[in-house]
Design a binder for these strands. Structure first.
Lengths: 159, 159
DNA sequence: GCTTGACTTAGAGCGCGCTCGAACCCGTAG
DNA sequence: CTACGGGTTCGAGCGCGCTCTAAGTCAAGC
């Protein structure tokens, strides 16, 4: 299968497939006589799985880590497992956050009762402080040091 | 309240607060005698709500739309309501997707049974095709034309 | 008077995940 | 022989949401 066909079947673009190969998410493809990528259908399974991880909000660097472990063979299974378990927690947290937000939205929408009437000030529904969870935590972990910082609330932000 | 204090109380950085003002998410702040921003505590309520929308994954341009409507007064309530309702659907979809992914992760993790044994090939669990929903749909809607382009499949890309 | 520290602006830079353009190569059909 | 519909590489560009720097102003405390 050539790259165009794989693109069609996987739902990625050829550009993206090459990009994924470049960064190591996909294995270096075999080439045909004319040095064009020639894929085995089995790659679809892997792409499918990557799609799942992506849909689950896993950052590419983690998928990369998984891909590397996978390439290193069966000995890495416990670690792969831990990786997935860790991400499962992230997803659970995210689901919880979103459900929380759904409640807020519901409340807010209910505030805009019938379709008009009432003035502008139902702009204050917040069951509990938000304090920007998870992706914050993820992102920040990568970033530069906390400039020792201005006190209170902020340090909590993982920055 | 000056910007530093607001930063502390809101959990945003002063940089971010200015940025939000610049793009219109926050109203232009009043200034004190020295032209420094001087906030009323009530702004916290709005920031809190923005935080909610953000946690709900609403893109800034939609928050912006909401902010603009809000600034235009009570007459825009029905539209604000619709905006929130629309986003509520997005969030619901997202929750469903994530829950789906949780199942996949569970299955996958279960596949890495005890902690070792078994070879490398439980890399194929996918209840149903993914076909990259929602954010895809969102993003793409914004982008350039299909450039009439190189044929077939690509234009069709709901992607 | 001088230092300190919080503020001001404009604008550049970054991390992420693609996405695209340019210039070129190949094989097949007409 | 030529056109064309694929493919190739390299590297630049983009959209998002910040994040930071530089250079300057100001007020309070020593």
């Amino acid at each position: 299968m050539k790259i165009g066909e794989l693109a069609r079947q996987s739902g990625l673009t050829a550009h993206t497939i090459r990009y994924y190969e470049r960064i190591g998410l996909l294995p270096r493809a075999d080439r045909d006589h004319a040095c064009q990528r020639d894929y085995d259908a089995s790659i679809l399974t892997w792409i499918e799985f990557l799609g799942r991880l992506k849909a689950a909000g896993m950052p590419i660097r983690d998928m990369l880590r998984y891909a590397e472990l996978r390439a290193r063979g069966a000995a890495t299974e416990p670690e792969r497992r831990r990786l997935l378990e860790r991400h499962r927690e992230v997803v659970r947290t995210r689901v919880a956050t979103l459900q929380d937000c759904l409640l807020v939205l519901d409340g807010k929408i209910a505030g805009y009762a019938g379709s008009s009437e009432r003035t502008d000030d139902h702009d204050a529904i917040h069951p509990e402080p938000i304090r920007d969870n998870e992706h914050g935590a993820n992102r920040r972990a990568i970033r530069r040091q906390p400039r020792s910082g201005p006190v209170g609330a902020r340090p909590a932000r993982a920055r």
